[in-house]
Computed example of a mutant assay.
Amino acid sequence: MSVTGTPVESPHVFARRAKEAHMARRRKPDWLKQRPPSGQRFTEIKETLRDRDLHTVCEEANCPNLGECWSGRNGPGTATFMLMGDRCSRACNFCDVETGGMEALDPEEPSKVADAVAEIGLDYVVLTSVDRDDLPDQGAGHFARTVEAIKERDPGILVEVLIPDFRGDPALVDRIVEAGPDVIAHNVETVERLQWPVRDRRAGYEQSLSVLERVADTADVYTKTSLMLGVGEYDHEIYRTLSDCREAGVDVVTLGQYLQPSRSHLDVYEYVHPDAFETWRRVAEAELGFLYCASGPMVRSSYRAGELFVDAVLRDGRSIDEARREAHAAT
């Protein structure tokens, strides 16, 4: 007993109770439960990809939305093609893509992707890639040739690219810009304080911002980035990160819940409630002036990309400058 009559827990009991409370906070809530992928559309896309030995980040990163996006409930579906193989030269602690053991690029991959896009019937394509620090140009030329192959086949297809940081080399970023994608995305992933241990040490906050700023300064395209929540960030850090991204010229941002791919990956610090994601959406759009913010526990950087704001604006014929003026006038 304490001098006031209040029981005092032993350090052992206190530690156990703290651990129990922490595990309860990390227990996956109902709003994160997903149905397994299924359906004819899902099967068709999978067969098309396998026939051409192509990869998607949907599968390689174990995305929880794979079934929903591939099924395309209200349209042709969305698949995010992952270029340059299924092994990454970096080892980010949140990512389920295998690392090391890099293989030679498939010179036919750009045309294979263009063929698959046509067969699946996509009118909005998302391309991403593993990091290829082992290559002289880090894969920028291969990435750009894939964009060009799709556009050459059908200039009306909208192409969104989610690019690596290319170690901040502006010439390699420019090569992507020259290929003519409609949206260029690069993910900051998390707040500055948590870049390590969340990301590989070769990545970095300022380096990623420099890539986004380079795109915004040199290209007449939409710029986009994404943040994971639930890795230990504070609210003021989220706000600062969003502000820094807007200052760098980012138009579109997505926020989603980090989910641990396996026990060997980074722990989930907390599961963020859907109401908090909605609050951040309002802050991003109404206060900070992003043109569009997709924010929710299951949102990913390329989540149902063809149904997002950018697709609607471009199909409507509005210019990027017009959309930006409208958004800024509303803030």
Rank of each mutant, 00 (worst) to 15 (best):
E108K: 11
L49I: 10
E60Q: 13
R325Y: 08
R35L: 11
E233W: 04
L288T: 01
L259H: 00
P37L: 05
A118P: 05
D267M: 12
M298E: 05
G139M: 03
R17S: 11
V147F: 07
T241M: 03
G5D: 12
R145P: 04
H22S: 13
D311N: 15
V231Y: 00
V231F: 07
Y271Q: 10
V268C: 05
G204R: 02
A114E: 00
I320K: 08
C293K: 07
V268D: 02
G168L: 03
G168M: 03
L242G: 00
R16M: 07
T218A: 12
S319E: 11
G77K: 03
E237P: 01
E68A: 09
L212I: 06
S302P: 02
R281N: 08
E20L: 11
D131N: 13
P76K: 10
F143E: 00
A171H: 11
F42K: 00
F81D: 01
T190P: 00
S38M: 08
K19E: 11
E278M: 10
G168Q: 02
G5Q: 11
D267Y: 09
A323S: 14
T48Y: 09
D133G: 07
G306W: 00
D30W: 12
P297N: 12
D275E: 15
D174A: 11
S262Q: 10
K28G: 01
S2G: 14
P155G: 11
V231L: 13
V250I: 10
L49G: 05
H142G: 05
F290E: 03
N187R: 01
D316S: 15
V161E: 04
R41P: 03
R202I: 10
M84F: 10
D96W: 06
E192I: 02
E109C: 07
T128E: 04
P164H: 04
D53I: 04
A79D: 03
